Simulated assay, not measured.
Amino acid sequence: MKADVTTLEAKKAGTVDLPEDVFGLEPRADLLHRMVTYQLARQQAGTHKTKGRSEVAGSTKKIVRQKGSGGARHGNKKAPQFRGGGKAFGPVVRSHAVNLPKKIRALALRHALSAKATAGELVILEDVNMTAPKTKTVKDAFGKLGLNSVLIIDGPELNENFALAARNIPHVDVLPAQGINVYDILRRDKLVLTKAALDSLEARFK
């Protein structure tokens, strides 16, 4: 499939062939959902922790005799029902990560790219090279291109001036080609790929 190539000045710069097996698939919501769940679960720190009855400070002495008090048979003050006692079934430090096969992760990325191409939300730029980190220049360029909420993927190495200029603009993410992922693609309205990013993706999916 063919796609138009533009410049940061919103001028035409020819066309490019997009591989059908990456940008021409019928998007599957189930795959995208599984991948987003996988990514968000891996981002959780899992450092939440409460103390159980074996960890709180306090005496282990039996507070009342076993029989004859007319009350319940309590063991000690560290039981969860007492103030200052341990938490029953509280959170512990753990990993929230879920398993997802590598082939499924790769297929989900293809479907995310295809979803953007199918919806007409894919923009191909010739390059994003800048000689100075001017945020106003980038904002003006985005205005001409009609970009508000956007993920921009460059080649293996980011243009430092462009990355510095774009990082102050809300709802704009800039990543190198190796950092492309399903969650960031779907959370922005538009996906912008440079020609260098296309070459990296083509080599990645070979």
Rank of each mutant, 00 (worst) to 15 (best):
E55F: 02
V172I: 00
N161R: 04
R34F: 07
D154S: 13
L32T: 02
Q44D: 01
L193Y: 06
V138L: 03
V123N: 02
E26H: 08
N159K: 07
A197L: 00
M130K: 02
Y38N: 12
N161H: 14
A41M: 10
R110L: 04
Q81G: 02
I169V: 12
R34Y: 09
L109N: 09
Q39E: 11
E202T: 13
G143W: 08
Y183V: 00
K116E: 14
A166Q: 09
D21H: 14
R167Y: 02
K12P: 12
V128E: 05
Q44F: 03
G85C: 03
D184E: 10
G75Q: 03
L201G: 10
K78V: 08
G52H: 07
H33P: 04
T194Q: 01
G68Q: 05
K2V: 06
H171C: 09
E26Y: 06
H171Q: 14
A29C: 01
V172Y: 03
G68I: 01
H96T: 11
H74T: 06
A119K: 10
R167Q: 06
R94S: 06
D173C: 04
L113A: 01
H96N: 13
L109A: 09
G70L: 11
L193V: 03
K61T: 09
G155V: 11
R188S: 08
R42W: 13
K139N: 10
Q178N: 15
V98I: 11
V150G: 05
I152W: 03
R73V: 15
T131D: 13
F23V: 11
P27N: 01
V16H: 13
I185S: 14
A115M: 07
I124D: 08
H96V: 03
H74I: 15
D154E: 12
D199P: 03
N148F: 03
G85E: 12
H74L: 13
T15R: 12
Q178E: 08
T137C: 00
K49N: 15
Q44H: 10
A88P: 02
R167S: 10
F205E: 08
A97C: 05
G179E: 07
G146Y: 02
L125A: 13
V93W: 04
H74Y: 15
K11R: 13
I152L: 10
G90Q: 11
T47Q: 09
F142I: 07
F142A: 05
A163D: 06
S69W: 15
T60V: 06
G146F: 00
S95M: 04
L100C: 05
G85T: 10
L25W: 12
